[in-house]
Design a protein around this nucleic acid. Sequence first.
DNA 1: GCCGCCTAGTTGACATGTCACCAACCGTAG
DNA 2: CTACGGTTGGTGACATGTCAACTAGGCGGC
Lengths: 158, 158
Amino acid sequence: MCQLVGTIADMGWLTGKEMQAWIGYRRMRLLLDLQLNRDLMSQAGLSEADYDVLSNLSESPHQQLRLTDLATHMRWSKSRLSHHITRMQRRGLVDRHDCKDDGRGSMLVLTPAGLKAIEEAAPGHVESVRKHMIDLMTDEELAALAAFSHRIVAHLSE
Amino acid sequence: MCQLVGTIADMGWLTGKEMQAWIGYRRMRLLLDLQLNRDLMSQAGLSEADYDVLSNLSESPHQQLRLTDLATHMRWSKSRLSHHITRMQRRGLVDRHDCKDDGRGSMLVLTPAGLKAIEEAAPGHVESVRKHMIDLMTDEELAALAAFSHRIVAHLSE
DNA sequence: GCCGCCTAGTTGACATGTCACCAACCGTAG
DNA sequence: CTACGGTTGGTGACATGTCAACTAGGCGGC
């Protein structure tokens, strides 16, 4: 982490303020991730990735989705999703069904166990997110984060 | 990504504004990381992790550090660093020396190849960080990011 | 119908990170 | 001096993610 940029002989590639923002971002990202994952894993036995998949699935119509749609929505690669679903399927959290409309496709469905898992995990996860991030920010900071993150996401999505 | 929280039956665990900030953060984190890694890998053949290690090492006195010190500074686990250093050592970017003061320790040193790699990679990486993040943010947003990220890091560091 | 091309999803090899455990070494209380 | 508890770093098993093939099923032009 730390001096990620502009540090060799301090050539001033990033100004002090920019550097503070960048370093802070990197460190926050690392530590927040670890903490949220730890909390979620110890409270609910789920990783953040599991949580995201279950969460998306639980709110889609009929609690089912095409793999590609889910991958696009989550911005995951198909490969990543396929591997991850295989692992979650082994644990009984989700299931694959054949897709009627398209012989190539797979329909991803939430199992009762998966629904139970996400319902039990959600309150603790939200509390965790609040405690370690949201509640530490002012309204202005929240608004700023929403604004620049959406701008950056739009830029990165071409 | 997306509806990570408070989404089951929309129970309002996070307010709309909080949700926007949270979702934006998650997506930005995912996409920015991918992009910066892709850029760095294609331009310099380094991962961000490689870059961070080399960067930290290059600015320490005599371009060498104890493993524990580097791990603490980067907030990496010792195990992660040890594995990563082993891989970088195989590629000739860094080297381990015995530590005179402490028979247990290892001194991490930057090789000439490692120095060359970080010096060549730095300008492109900084440009990448600017292009995909810093230059898309206003001064106020940079200040806000620096402020809340440092606050959150302090909180997470206990 | 048939052919070429696109898309959906899977797979295997490999890179990376985590956790738990271990061996060697330090420093200090007795 | 010696034993013990803490520190330093390494290792192996395993979870996860990436990339590049690959299979199989659609789709449009002829």
